[in-house]
Amino acid sequence: MPRPALEVADIFRDHGPAWRSANAGHLSLGQLKVMSAIENCRTAALGGHVARCEKCAHTKISYNSCRNRHCPKCQGAAAKDWLAAREADLLPVPYYHVVFTLPAAIADIAYQNKAVVYDLLFKASAETLATIAADPRHLGARVGITSVLHTWGSAMTHHPHVHMIVPGGGVSPDGQRWVSCRPGFFLPVRVLSRLFRRLFLEKLIAAHNTGHLKFFGDHAALADPRAFAAYLAPLRRAEWVVYAKRPFGGPQAVLAYLSRYTHRVAIANSRLIACDRTGVTFRWKDYRANGRDRQKLMTLPTGEFIRRFLIHVLPHGFHRIRHYGLLASGTRADNIARARELLAVSNSQAEPTGAAADPGKPICPCCGGRMIIIEVFARGATPRHRPTASPTAIKIDTS
């Protein structure tokens, strides 16, 4: 894959040192580590290897990736490995996409309490979906849920929400049959929205009562229980956004969707246009507009671009992809096997197709021959071998 003309790493390398100096004392250790990882990703600072074609002797240097989950360059390989494992879990049923979004007033609290509030978002949304699906008035079944946390909008503002991928049906309470949802319809979003609102607020108040929430700056007064109750009062009457999209075209469409969403970061390198004296220009999607008018360009001061990117750094050890119900990790294999049995699908038909498998060892860009690693060099070291020059550019993998 060709290297994008501009990368987040370029912006961090050129402007990061001055920005860190100007904001010293206001950055978390996690944010500093993310900046360092992205700056060093696929450079000599992390070491790498030299590969040579066994046919034409074309030589190429490949630097190691940082493997940081916030790095735009490292998520492709991570998503590929994750999808290869998930492909075996797909069932031959329609899949639905449901989105649960926190109101702006709650997002403000989440900004200062990321680990606590993001965790509540996961739990309340999963409990909501599982409860309504189990209700015989709606589906009357135990469903499987894959939830993915996104904390950004298209302009990298703080906009926490979870994307859920759910099979269109579930196992009956007695475990004896598969219950399918109505064609083209999963669960009523208004019912989901009301229950989500109640469950989330209950959990948030419980977290406040146990002292798990911290407040700073303009929100410092919310540490008082009465002020906090008054702050939440309007949210009990507001409509909370729950959105259900149309079902996917089939299992492979689910995989294609997941490959775009599960390991996404705040902004992809492909959306970057320019970085100059006016700031950083990038493409974004304005969802308030219609059709083609949604695609727009935005220019932010470089410091503001860096700040917006870093507000989406997750707390250390926080899991941004979670599974519930039939897909809960401890019982997933048994539940999937039972679901296939109820759907009359043999396990042999359920084996991965290999669509998301690793494409294999790298091939020579010149002749298609096999590339053999001839040297491995350590962090900060200079490789002994040099890359093969070409009329256009040196072949160095920094994609």
Rank of each mutant, 00 (worst) to 15 (best):
M1L: 09
P2V: 01
D10T: 03
F12S: 00
H15E: 08
G16I: 01
P17H: 06
H26P: 04
Q31C: 10
L32H: 04
S36Y: 15
I38G: 09
N40R: 12
L46S: 08
R52Y: 02
E54S: 03
K55D: 12
C56P: 04
H58K: 10
T59A: 02
S62G: 03
N64V: 05
R67Q: 14
C71D: 00
A77C: 14
A84M: 01
A85T: 11
A88W: 04
D89I: 02
D89R: 01
Y96F: 00
H97T: 10
F100H: 02
A105M: 05
I106M: 05
I109M: 09
V117R: 06
D119P: 12
T128I: 03
A130E: 11
T131A: 10
P136F: 15
R137Q: 00
H138D: 11
H138G: 07
A141W: 08
I145G: 01
H150W: 02
T151C: 04
A155D: 10
H158K: 07
H158D: 04
V166M: 06
G168M: 07
G168V: 09
G170F: 02
R177M: 14
R182A: 06
R182I: 05
P183W: 11
F186H: 13
P188Y: 05
V191P: 13
R197Q: 11
L199V: 10
L201H: 11
E202C: 03
I205F: 12
A207T: 12
H208D: 04
H212K: 13
L213H: 07
K214D: 09
F216Q: 12
L222H: 03
A223L: 10
L235T: 04
A238H: 09
F248M: 08
F248P: 11
Q252W: 15
S259K: 01
I267C: 09
N269R: 10
T278Q: 13
K285N: 14
Y287N: 06
G291E: 05
Q295I: 07
K296W: 14
L297E: 06
G303D: 09
E304L: 10
E304S: 14
I306H: 06
R307M: 13
R308F: 01
G317S: 04
F318L: 10
I321G: 05
R322H: 00
R322T: 08
R322L: 02
L326D: 06
S329A: 07
S329N: 10
T331V: 00
E341L: 14
E351G: 09
P352C: 00
G354V: 03
A355D: 02
A356H: 11
A356Q: 12
A357H: 06
G360C: 07
C366T: 09
G368N: 05
M371L: 08
M371Q: 03
I374E: 07
V376D: 03
A378T: 07
H385Q: 15
R386G: 15
A389T: 15
S390K: 05
